[in-house]
Amino acid sequence: MQAAPMPVASTEPILSARGLTKEFFGFKAVNGVDLDVYSGTIHALIGPNGAGKTTVFNLLTKFLSPTAGTIRFDGRDITRTKPADVARLGLVRSFQISAVFAQLTVLDNVRVALQRQSGLATQFWRSNAVLSRLDARAAELIEAVGLSSFSETLAGDLPYGRKRALEIATTLALDPPVMLFDEPMAGMGVEDIGRISALIRKVAAGRTVLMVEHNLNVVSDLCDRVTVLARGEILADGDYAAVSADPRVREAYMGSEHA
C-alpha cells in the first residue's frame, strides 16, 4: 500500500512489519501497517492523538500480540516471540510514562539493567555486594546521561526530565542494536528537550532508533526518516521535508478531523 521504501544507509530493514493489525473488540487500533526501519537511522513515528503509535510500539516489542500481520527483526520472525525474549534479541523499548524503579537508587536502576547479561541475576545464595562489580560500567552509563551527581538518589525523587535520562541509561545498559523510545520528550520543558535530543543523537551512533514523538521541531532536527500514522493506518512515509509537504499529513495535523 506504500510507495517503495527510499534507499537509505542499508538496503535490508533491521525491523520490519507487514500488514500489522490490532483489533480491540472490533475496533481496529492499528490496521495493515507496513513499516520498515533501516539500520543506523533515527526513525520517527508521528501522528495525531489516537493514531495508534503506542499500539504499534507495543506490537513491535510484543507487549501486545497482533491480530494479524508479521514482524521481522534482524532476519528473524518475532511475531510469536515473548516480550522479554524480544528484549534479549536486542530490541529494547522505553515507555511513555517514565519507567524507572522508583524505590531504587539511580545506581541500582542501572545495575538491574546490567545484571542479566553479566550472569548476576539468578544468584539467590550470594550477597548483593557482588553487584559492586557492575559499578564501573554503571558509573559510565550514568555519566553518559549526565546523572553522576544523582547516583545515590532514589529514582522516584528525580525530576521528570532526569527520569527520562535515567531510562535511556538503563536501555543503553543492554547495549541494544535497536532502541524504541515512546515519546521521550513528552511533558518536558525547553531545556530538557534540548538535553534529551542531544542525548538521543549521541546514543544513536552505531544503533538504530525508532521513536514516537509529537514535537515536530525535534523530529525535523533529529530524524532521518518519518512515518506518519493516522487512525491506525500509515498516511505517509519518507524524509521530513517530503512528509511535511504532504497535504494529507497537513490535514491530519491541522485538525480537520471528520470522524
Binding site: A99, V112, Q115, R116, R126, N128, L131
Partner: peptide, 23 residues
C-alpha cells in the same frame, strides 16, 4: 541477593523489567 535485587525491580515496575529482558 542479586536475585532479590531483580525481584525488587519486578515489584517496582514489572513492565520495565520485562523490557529489560527479564523473564
Amino acid at each position: 541477593s542479586p536475585f532479590g535485587h531483580v525481584l525488587q525491580a519486578i515489584r517496582e515496575n514489572e513492565n520495565r523489567a520485562v523490557s529489560l529482558g527479564y523473564r
